[in-house]
C-alpha cells in the first residue's frame, strides 16, 4: 500500500486521510478536490495514473493545508508521531512517500521513528521531507531520495541544513554528480538508494551508481514545475507494485522522460498537461527495460 504524505496549498485545510482519485483532470482525496499544481498534488496525480496503469490499488494520502506558515506541516508531523503502529510482522509492504512539508528537525525525527516501527515500511522522500531528513541526520533511515542536481549538492554538503545554504563551490560542482554522491554517502547524508534527476538520471545503490538514464533527452522539461513531483509519484507506485527499488527507479526515470517526449512540451507547458501520457510512456519504459 502506498501512502503519500505532504501539504497542499489550501489555507486552513484540516488533516485529511483518504483514498486518491484522479480523472478528467480533477484530483480528489477523500472527496475533497485539490488544486492541481506543482508539489504533492502532482505527485498524487502521477501516482494514481501509474497505479491505474499497473492495475494495482490506488494510493492513499495524508494531507493538510499549508501555505508556508508550517501549521499544516505540524498537523502532519503530529499525526505521524501519534500513530499507534502494530509491531506484528505483516507480509504486506507499506510505502510511505513523504513530500512537500515545512522542515522541522525535531518533529521529523519523532515521525520517522514511529513509521520505522512498521516492519515492512519503505520510506521515500522528496522535496521538504528530504531536506529535513538530511538536516536532522536521519537520511539513512530512508530507502529512496529523489534529488535534483542542486539538491544533490545539498546532500553532499555536511554543513547545509537546507538547499538555500549549499556552499557555492558545491553548487558550482553540480555537474560532477559522482563526487557529490560519494560525499553524501561519506557523511551519511543519503538514503539507501538515490534517484538523482538531471540531464542524466543516476540510480544509486548505497554509494554505487548502478544505472544512468539519458534518453530521451527533453530540454524543455527543466523549467516545467512539477516534473520532479511526477517522477516521485511514478517511482513510488512502481515500488508499490512489488518492483525492487533499483528497477523501479530505472523504469520511473525512463517513464518520466518519455512522458515529456510524448507531450512535446515547451517551457510554458504545465506538468498536469503531460500526465495523461504516463500509461503509454510506462508501457514503453517497461519494454525497453526488459530488453535492456
Amino acid at each position: 500500500m502506498l501512502t503519500i504524505i505532504g501539504t497542499v496549498p489550501l489555507k486552513g485545510m484540516p488533516l485529511t486521510l483518504g483514498s486518491c482519485k484522479f480523472s478528467n483532470g480533477k484530483l480528489k482525496v477523500d472527496d475533497l478536490e485539490l488544486p492541481l499544481i506543482n508539489g504533492t498534488s502532482v505527485m498524487i496525480a502521477a501516482a494514481v495514473t501509474t497505479s491505474g496503469s499497473l492495475g494495482i490499488k490506488t494510493p492513499q494520502a495524508i494531507l493538510a493545508g499549508d501555505t508556508g506558515s508550517g501549521d499544516g506541516s505540524n498537523l502532519i508531523y503530529r499525526f505521524l508521531r501519534d500513530q499507534k503502529c502494530s509491531l506484528h510482522a505483516s507480509s504486506n509492504q507499506e510505502i510511505f512517500a513523504l513530500h512537500y512539508i515545512k522542515p522541522n528537525i525535531l518533529y521529523i525525527k519523532e515521525a520517522v521513528k514511529r513509521l520505522k516501527r512498521k516492519p515492512n515500511a519503505i520510506l521515500v522522500a522528496d522535496a521538504g521531507a528530504m531536506y529535513v531528513a538530511k538536516a536532522a541526520g536521519i537520511a539513512k533511515e530512508f530507502d529512496l531520495f529523489t534529488p535534483d542536481l542542486g539538491e544533490m549538492a545539498f546532500l553532499a554538503d555536511p554543513e547545509a541544513v537546507h538547499p538555500a545554504y549549499v556552499r557555492n563551490y558545491l553548487f558550482e560542482n553540480a555537474n560532477d554528480v559522482d563526487s557529490l554522491i560519494k560525499q553524501a554517502y561519506e557523511y551519511s547524508n543519503a538514503s539507501n538508494f538515490l534517484l538523482v534527476k538531471g540531464a542524466i538520471d543516476y540510480v544509486v545503490d548505497r554509494a554505487t551508481v548502478v544505472a544512468k538514464v539519458v534518453e530521451p533527452s527533453v530540454a524543455a522539461l527543466e523549467p516545467i514545475g512539477g516534473t520532479g513531483d511526477s517522477l516521485s509519484g511514478i517511482v513510488s507506485s512502481l515500488i508499490d507494485s512489488g518492483l525492487d527499488i533499483k528497477h523501479a527507479a530505472i523504469i520511473a526515470a525512463k517513464t518520466n522522460r518519455l512522458m515529456g517526449k510524448y507531450s512535446n512540451p515547451n517551457p510554458s507547458t504545465k506538468v498536469w498537461e503531460m500526465l495523461s501520457n504516463i500509461p503509454k510512456a510506462l508501457q514503453e519504459a517497461k519494454t525497453v527495460s526488459t530488453l535492456g
Binding site: T7, T40, G68, G128, Y131, G150
Partner: peptide, 23 residues
C-alpha cells in the same frame, strides 16, 4: 515569456509555500 513578461513556470524547492506561490 521574454515578450509578454508572463511567468510560465516555477520549479524546484520543497517547502510548503512553493505550491502556493506557484498558484
Amino acid at each position: 515569456n521574454k515578450t509578454t513578461g508572463e511567468i510560465v513556470n516555477i520549479s524546484g524547492g520543497g517547502c510548503s509555500d512553493i505550491p502556493f506561490l506557484a498558484l
